[in-house]
Design a protein around this nucleic acid. Structure first.
Lengths: 211, 211
DNA sequence: TCCTGTGAAACGGTTCACAGCC
DNA sequence: GGCTGTGAACCGTTTCACAGGA
């Protein structure tokens, strides 16, 4: 097996692959040509066995006695994760979280290009954020018809999230990254992922209370 | 079994419990007295069987033929998750993400009180953020000695994260919520949870590329 | 009848241990 | 000797199906 993905890859695996990618990029910048599963594991916070399992499932190129070739594996991972291209993104919600996400340099570095920013606040609509102009959410469908995006980042209040998400889905978005603390109900053709900072804090509390 | 937690609760369960809590609060505000596992499941994005399994593990109070008593279950969950008290938090990193987190109203509403804000930027050090003053990271140990916190929220650049996290751990923090895209190595007595927005976006890409 | 509580089965992910190759 | 690749065992979680109480 040389190119394709072997068995179906689950969500935890994908997260780890992202981490491997980051570690590999660092290693390349540091001039390494090969990395052992042990080293990769340390750099990405997992175990060597896990690394080998993950990479072998991709039909990987590791050399016994030597390790994994940094450059080759890096390109392979980028391709598998779909990061060897540019992705267009719409940011919905120009509040505090939206602002932070817009300025997050990691996104652009990874090929995510924020093409649209929407909000409902009249004070924000019309502002120029870099090269994009903040538009009213009512213009969402028109804007996406003119310049489509694959991904919507949802950074709106919980009460508005479901409605806005549906609007985005109707406008042809294929994936939603949801920062609102509510579960979204969308047609299965739309991929959804939730980031809920409160839940993370609450999990920590639980761990503190139940050591 | 009336009060304690039955079998050990895993991380996915805790996340769902947080969601149940949110759904229950909404239901209470809407005047409901009982909620069936079916209704709870719909409101929190899971299945009825899952809800029953989760709640029965807490020695729950559900009544057959009727459902779960909203108020009672709500208090029970708050106690189990450790949310029936106030938690003191230090925010480390006063950049875009730090700013957004500081202003996130959900945190305070849930009992998380940001007592300290730290940064290294001389332009920020000294600013008054509400009732707290931004201090230099070098003052971290002194500040936490004077007014301790249980939790540190880390919103600093990747390169600084490990060092700052260690400093926080030495200063007596018990849990770290890490927004930097690097795995942290901390003594096991410190609970760590990572929020990595880039990884979430990358997972979405993968889903889009591998439908 | 409605709905919970729960053993049992199915599933998926992780760890182990070692065979195989350099 | 060093390190990868991988079947097998292990473990926690989810789903199923149904018994049992209101």
């Amino acid at each position: 097996m040389a190119t394709g993905v072997g068995r179906r890859i689950g969500e935890p695996t994908v997260r780890r692959l992202s981490n491997y990618l980051r570690a590999l990029q660092q290693a390349r910048d540091a001039g390494y040509e090969h990395l052992s599963s042990e080293e990769l594991a340390r750099a990405s916070g997992t175990t060597a066995a896990q690394v080998r399992k993950d990479l072998s499932a991709l039909g990987s190129f590791g050399r016994r006695g030597l390790g994994y070739p940094v450059g080759e594996l890096l390109e392979h991972l980028r391709r598998i994760l779909g990061l060897d291209r540019r992705w267009n993104v719409a940011l919905i919600g120009a509040g505090r979280i939206g602002t932070a996400l817009f300025g997050y340099p990691e996104f652009r570095r990874r090929g995510f290009e924020i093409r649209h920013v929407f909000d409902v606040d009249p004070a924000k609509v019309g502002q120029a954020w870099g090269s994009v102009r903040v538009r009213h959410v009512d213009e969402l469908e028109a804007a996406l018809a003119q310049e489509p995006v694959e991904i919507a980042i949802l950074a709106v209040p919980a009460a508005a999230a479901q409605t806005v998400a549906e609007k985005a889905a109707r406008a042809g978005v294929h994936a939603v990254l949801n920062f609102a603390p509510v579960p979204l109900r969308l047609p299965p053709r739309v991929a959804v992922r939730n980031v809920n900072m409160t839940i993370e804090l609450e999990s920590l509390c639980f761990q503190l209370c139940n050591p």
